[in-house]
């Protein structure tokens, strides 16, 4: 099966895709985009969160064929060249990254949250990020990072 999809603004085609493969496998193993992570492959951890047509989804639960002709944006597509997105910058600065395996998914989920809700309350942050498990940080510094990114984005 051939899968053609727009990833981070560039159209990519891959061949010989087994139809049981997930979008996550296609991104990681066929398109050279390992940023989205394979931590549970059952939608319970959020590590593989990517945008599909502008909405954050678990790439492990999207069948490869379902992404044909769609727009995918991964964590690799958030920075503006060398310049980190404010959410990425805040994660680094606040110590929200330890092992970092959950980070790509959390960065995409937080990016989506702040695009929809520019100044979320703590409970809003918690509900919005409840699908992203982190085992290292206890989430404290992730909350710090989202708050910091919100503050920075609010500035013109």
């Amino acid at each position: 099966m051939r899968v053609t999809t727009t990833v981070n603004g560039t159209e990519q085609s891959v061949d010989d895709v087994w139809p049981g493969e997930s979008l996550l496998y296609v991104l990681r193993e066929r398109m050279g985009l390992p940023g989205a992570k394979n931590a549970c492959e059952q939608g319970e951890c959020g590590s593989c969160t990517v945008y599909l047509d502008g909405e954050p989804v678990c790439a492990c639960l999207v069948a490869a064929g379902q992404a044909i002709g769609r727009e995918v944006v991964t964590v690799e597509g958030l920075a503006d060249g060398e310049r980190l997105h404010p959410v990425q910058e805040a994660f680094v600065e606040c110590g929200a990254v330890q092992c970092g395996f959950c980070t790509p998914g959390l960065v995409v989920a937080a990016h989506d949250l702040l695009a929809r809700v520019p100044s979320p309350s703590d409970l809003e942050i918690r509900e919005a990020l409840a699908g992203n498990l982190c085992r290292c940080t206890g989430y404290e510094k992730i909350l710090d990072a989202v708050r910091l990114a919100a503050t920075r984005q609010a500035r013109p």
């Binding site: 139809p19 049981g20 997930s22 492959e41 059952q42 492990c60 639960l61 999207v62 069948a63």
Partner: peptide, 26 residues
């Protein structure tokens, strides 16, 4: 049949099901 994939893909990823085809309703 597969729609959102949130059940079907778990079965595929965990090697619990190997249907002859996926019927994508998306």
């Amino acid at each position: 049949p597969i729609a959102g994939g949130t059940d079907v893909m778990v079965d595929l990823n965990f090697d619990r099901r190997r249907p002859g085809a996926l019927l994508d309703l998306g």
